[in-house]
Amino acid sequence: MLLNRKYVPVLVTFALFALMFIAGSFRYTGFFSLQVLMNLLVDNSFLIITAVGMTFVILSGGIDLSVGSVIALTTMVSASLVQNLGWPPVVVIPLVLVMGSVFGYIMGAIIHYFKIQPFIVTLAGMFLARGLCYVISINTITIDNAFYTKVAQTKIPLPGNSFISISVLIALIVVAAAIYIAHYTRFGRTVYALGGSEQSALLMGLPVAQTKIMVYTLSGFCSALAGVVFTFYMLSGYGLHAVGLELDTIAAVVIGGTLLTGGVGFIAGTFFGVLIQGVIQTIISFEGTLSSWWTKIVIGLLLFVFILLQRVLSARKATTIKA
């Protein structure tokens, strides 16, 4: 074998992204610029962060439906503490991060110790977090705190007259850290093993319980961090923020080549999975006449294609076992 076949889905994702970007560049004037590319990151940094956490969950063979609601709750708690109670951001941000992690930890513990499907536990988590938003307020809380507005408006200049935001920096750090965790730490490898076969992982003496709970804790943390970034992006807290985001996130992970059954996939794939969604949105906004719902249609079609692709690849895998 030349290159491992396991890289094929990621390469396909990357190629698809490149192809779409090039196609857009030929079709629309002004599309081909570094800033358009950077804007993909600027507009999707929270989605990247969430999808990274989700990738770990899906790699482990689970699913986390609570991410969108946790983002909303984070924006809401941040906004009310900073705006209504006047707490300093240095306190609020760590606090919401801990809150998100604890939320994930509890879901993970319930999933593991009571052996309940992640789908149903995180669905409950989704309703719970969304509901809690409205306990705080049913209205939007706009933030005019100096720190938040400063972070939101800061532009980090890049060559070629382009810029990125602080949020992009955070997202890129998260991606880099996640790649390291996934491939160079025991925790990361155990996540893959868990997704491959939980029974085997247990019999190999791997820390299954700890890893499983950590995966949901990590996803909770990522969602909360995405919530912080989202707060910078929107400068408000609102119970209707990030509705349905969990599905966009799952779509990004799957388009990125991660198998929903677990055990196979890459963080880098997820990264490009998010960017593909971004590029579709950009193309549609450049087109001008199309409704933004076209994004959903294209993503839906792409999902089908990727699921089929994975099926074809894993079918071919099965025939090589004869060896």
């Binding site: 160079y184 025991r186 491959g196 076969s197 055990g263």
Partner: peptide, 24 residues
């Protein structure tokens, strides 16, 4: 009882991988 999605080497070593400062 191994994980068929991991590499041969990993299946032998997982849980006891050679590490340096926690890096596999």
């Amino acid at each position: 009882n191994l994980c068929t999605n991991l590499t041969v080497a990993e299946n032998i070593f997982i849980g006891r991988e050679p590490r340096k400062f926690g890096r596999i």
